[in-house]
Design a protein around this nucleic acid. Structure first.
Length: 420
DNA sequence: TCTGGGGTCCTAGGACCC
DNA sequence: TCTGGGGTCCTAGGACCC
């Protein structure tokens, strides 16, 4: 048996933890630059606000219905996510953190009343973190996902849903839209509509050869999972990432070379820090940028330049300098750049890293100590405290006009309680 | 005025090997 | 008419996830 614990409307729920006055009211959280709605409370969904709606288009609704608006505050969400995970670890030794708001629990070998267990996990998360969590338990991960979605639809389930008997699963799948199944995206959905498949049950009833022909291996896995055969492996070990990307949209169109290189160098510095945090070396870096695709009358450019580090590197200085040099090549006067970023690929682990016979080991040692010092200082005193001049002010130039305090991660932002 | 960011896996096809 | 058989590795692009 697997459980899926899914935090309801996670970012919006996080904002409500320290603003209980917003319970029962519409709340939305915006993406970087306050661009789009990326989380909505149930009340905001009921007003017709969709995932990804641009903020400027929904402003009339927001104003008319007094929707509470927040810029994204990932320091807060990350911290509350860790607290939820801590509670979940009390319920299974094997927890797979699937995303910031979802975790799978391996419950194999346990003999408990699973329905009660699911409700208990949900209740406990709510009590310890104030985050509402939906817990679905089923024989496969895909079915557990469906079970957790049922919790959101039916409040009488008390946040916990257990489904395992074939007749119960069939009953649920017959009413479950195939497009809401984990692994069925919009492209697959269009194909399925053409052949008249509407529900998860329709999909599970297709012949194996049809599924394989249309959707290949990934689609076949989903098909089997719906039929109760586990195919998606449980991964509670955190594997190092195979690619690391830091990219942002800018708050305005960037036309100045200095600002452009400064931003790219800042992304590179952040990406280099991520690389070292997971003890990796990168052999390839891509620096990319693009103009504003929504401005149809402006000249458009979109592209990237690859940089190779044949021996692999995690050195802060080399990476930042290489990124800045590449940014200068990428930049063309007359274009307004709206987004840029840096991606590391060809990632290898420290243990597998081999130095060149001719490399200067003493210089390498110095660079490693420099990188470590930069990381330590920036962790203690805040991002961009210690930086290279080429990085400009070392900050991401973003608009965040509705940001909540860092309630749980900054001393000066801790909420106070007054006792009368 | 204004439109997010960060990942994974799979497949087809090309280039190459013997 | 007809042109071997079996591999590997890499890359770009598609599809999916949150």
């Amino acid at each position: 048996m697997y459980a899926l614990a899914d935090c309801n409307n996670f970012f919006a729920s996080c904002e409500r933890v320290f603003r209980p006055d917003l319970n029962g009211k519409p709340v939305i959280v915006l993406s970087n630059n306050d661009g789009c709605a990326i989380a909505r409370s149930e009340e905001a969904k009921a007003l017709g606000i969709k995932m990804g709606d641009p903020f400027f288009k929904i402003k009339p609704i927001v104003e008319r219905y007094k929707v509470a608006v927040f810029s994204s505050n990932f320091a807060l969400y990350g911290d509350l996510s860790a607290r939820v995970q801590e509670v979940l670890r009390g319920y299974s030794p094997c927890v797979e953190v699937y995303s910031i708001d979802e975790s799978f629990l391996d419950l194999s070998g346990m003999s408990v009343d699973f329905k009660a267990y699911a409700e208990q996990i949900s209740r406990d998360c709510r009590r310890q973190t104030a985050i509402p969590v939906s817990v679905g338990i089923a024989p496969t991960k895909t079915l557990a996902k469906i079970a957790s979605k049922l919790c959101k639809r039916y409040p009488r389930l008390n946040g916990g849903c257990y489904m395992h008997r074939p007749q119960d699963i069939e009953k649920v799948l017959r009413k479950f839209p195939v497009g809401d199944v984990w692994g069925i995206g919009r492209h697959s959905l269009r194909k399925l509509e053409e052949i008249g498949v509407r529900t998860a049950w329709d999909y599970a009833s297709l012949p194996e050869s049809t599924v394989m022909g249309l959707f290949h291996l990934p689609g076949l896995r989903t098909w089997k999972e719906l039929r109760g055969i586990p195919c998606i492996v449980f991964e509670d070990m955190i594997e190092p990432k195979q690619s690391i990307c830091v990219s942002r949209s800018f708050s305005h169109d960037v036309t100045d070379l200095q600002e452009f290189t400064g931003q790219i160098a800042t992304f590179a510095g952040k990406a280099a820090e991520k690389l070292r945090t997971q003890h990796s070396f990168a052999t390839e870096m891509v620096v990319f940028a693009m103009t504003n695709r929504f401005k149809e009358d402006a000249p458009q450019a979109c592209g990237g330049i690859h940089v190779l580090f044949p021996e692999g590197t995690q050195e802060h200085r080399s990476i930042v300098v290489a990124a800045a040099q590449t940014a200068r090549q990428l930049f063309h006067p007359g274009y307004g750049y709206k987004k840029g970023g840096v991606v590391f690929t060809g990632i290898e682990q420290e243990e597998a890293h081999v130095e060149s016979l001719f490399s200067d080991t003493r210089a390498a040692g110095r660079e490693a100590r420099l990188s470590a010092s930069i990381d330590a200082i920036n962790r203690s005193f805040g991002e961009g405290t210690l930086r290279f001049g080429i990085q400009g002010d070392g900050r991401f130039h973003m608009t965040q006009e509705h940001k909540s305090p860092h309630y749980t991660t900054r001393w000066s932002d801790i909420p106070g309680v007054s006792v009368k």
